[in-house]
């Protein structure tokens, strides 16, 4: 029996639109914060991974491209990539880079640095992105955050695409920092909950 599709099965359209919008106006990158806060809020408030399980548009996009469109070799992911060392290590690295980006944004807000109209891919390659910036009446820092955040989103999409091709379609889910973090929150919540019951 084929399960009937729900509205949230189409969220991949939102994810794809988000990536495309960043090519036209970088300020749309701010919308990506939704992909940060919604999973966290769900895991904190409800104690589950409903975001990963149902609503993650990026996961759906990989499932579609790797599955339906056959862009995946569908091989097993190497053991080290699914180990906790790698998952927690990647989470730490990802957040270190994220805070570095926030620091750079702060420097632009404070006027200590000039706005850099570039997107940094894989934390290394600086790609000129001035054509997606048409000015803002707010502080330059607002635009700097958009460039920085879009860099994070595009970098993780590229990594996800690479592992999608090499391994299974949703290989990104194995080491996705948001997934690792929400699972940690759920685990922590469960521990504290069971301790409360014991008392």
């Amino acid at each position: 029996m084929k399960q009937q599709k729900k509205w949230y099965d189409y969220l991949w359209i939102a994810s794809l639109t988000y990536l495309i919008l960043g090519f036209f106006n970088i300020l749309f990158a701010w919308l990506g914060l939704l992909c940060f806060f919604i999973p966290l809020l769900i895991s904190i408030a409800k104690g589950n991974k409903a975001y990963c399980n149902k609503y993650c548009g990026r996961g759906q996009l990989f499932a579609l491209a790797g599955g339906r469109f056959g862009l995946s070799r569908k091989k097993d992911i190497p053991k080290w990539m699914r180990s906790n060392y790698f998952r927690y290590g990647f989470l730490t690295f990802f957040f270190a880079m994220f805070f570095l980006m926030l620091w750079n944004t702060y420097l632009v807000f404070a006027g200590a640095k000039n706005l850099k109209m570039a997107v940094t891919l894989l934390w290394t390659f600086r790609v000129p992105w001035h054509w997606a910036y048409h000015g803002t009446w707010l502080s330059d820092g607002v635009a700097q955050f958009a460039f920085g955040f879009y860099s994070v989103m595009l970098t993780s999409t590229i990594l996800g695409l690479i592992t999608m091709v090499l391994f299974k379609p949703r290989s990104w889910c194995v080491y996705c920092p948001m997934g690792t973090m929400t699972q940690l929150i759920c685990k922590a919540r469960n521990v504290t909950l069971s301790q409360k019951i014991k008392k």
Partner: peptide
């Protein structure tokens, strides 16, 4: 990793 791919 509790991603839920199997559930789907």
């Amino acid at each position: 990793v509790a991603c839920g791919c199997c559930v789907k």
